[in-house]
Design a binder for these strands. Structure first.
Lengths: 155, 155
DNA sequence: GCATATTAAATAGCGCGCTATATAATTGCA
DNA sequence: TGCAATTATATAGCGCGCTATTTAATATGC
């Protein structure tokens, strides 16, 4: 099965060492990144996924749950409780759309908008922690985007 | 603060778009990878973190909780319940060390060892799904390992 | 018009991964 | 010896992220 790509047998002979595995590197880099964000976002009262949702809303302050989900590759089972926490924190409002009552439209509150200013240093701090040059950063980002889309079957 | 690296002001002007962010690419590639593994590991009755623990044990079949944690960058709060599930599944045994009763030594059972054979195709399948050449894969892995260690303050 | 299908969001339940804390065993030092 | 510090594991509680299912609203086909 599958012959248009380099033979998998090179890899699969036996279970490889952890050090040799891209997936473990990806997994543990993700955990490390999350830890960095946790400290930076604590003063804002946000988790990293909540911060992602806020970024999506700072770009476009009124979106349905599914629009947010499409941008973040997350579904309602993850977003619904997360958005309720943001609502409880007074950062967003949740309203049924009048045109189509199946949609719940998420809107930024004044506090939610105001938070953007406080979040300004977060990106800068993570950039410093990564100790990447802007071009390294862009390359790695592009490669990871490609990997994500291939793993998601968007090849 | 911190001047030996390229200026962060290039990045931090305002909140950047999601597409431009390495961290979001890392985060969502990790989720996508986990999804691929979930399907592949379901027949084995393992989650991805459980699979990582099994790989560590396949390399060295008797290790303390903290040794496993050091290899995977995970601590006891994550590993203890995970290892109990592997014990319930009959894949590992948990025993207090006699020399130092603070240590809990994890050992593979016969079933745990036997599972390695069934897990053989997993790496191959993920490799196919990633559609990377071996050299792309190695480069990306190296970059992610570097990123992880820098983010963890091991610079 | 009405039953059926589709869509959007919510819910239930599970397994991480974390912080903070607790418990127990060992070490170290006066 | 004895008592405080350290170390290894475990526990409590929270927030994702997932699958599977449910509820409600809209769209479609006869």
């Amino acid at each position: 099965m599958s012959s248009s790509r380099p033979s998998p047998s090179v890899i699969a002979a036996s279970t490889p060492k952890l050090d040799a595995q891209l997936c473990f590197a990806l997994y543990s880099a993700g955990l490390a990144m999350n830890k960095v964000y946790r400290k930076l976002l604590k003063p804002l009262g946000l988790t990293y996924p909540q911060y992602l949702v806020m970024m999506v809303l700072w770009q476009d302050e009124s979106q349905s749950v599914s629009e947010i989900g499409a941008r973040l590759f997350l579904d309602s089972a993850t977003l619904t409780p997360l958005l309720k926490r943001l609502e409880t924190a007074g950062l967003v409002a949740r309203l049924r759309s009048r045109e189509d009552e199946r949609h719940v439209v998420i809107t930024l509150t004044a506090r939610g908008k105001a938070l953007q200013a406080k979040a300004g240093k977060v990106q800068e701090s993570v950039f410093c922690a990564s100790q990447c040059t802007p071009s390294e950063l862009k390359h790695l980002k592009d490669e990871l985007q490609d990997l994500r889309s291939r793993l998601s079957g968007e090849a």
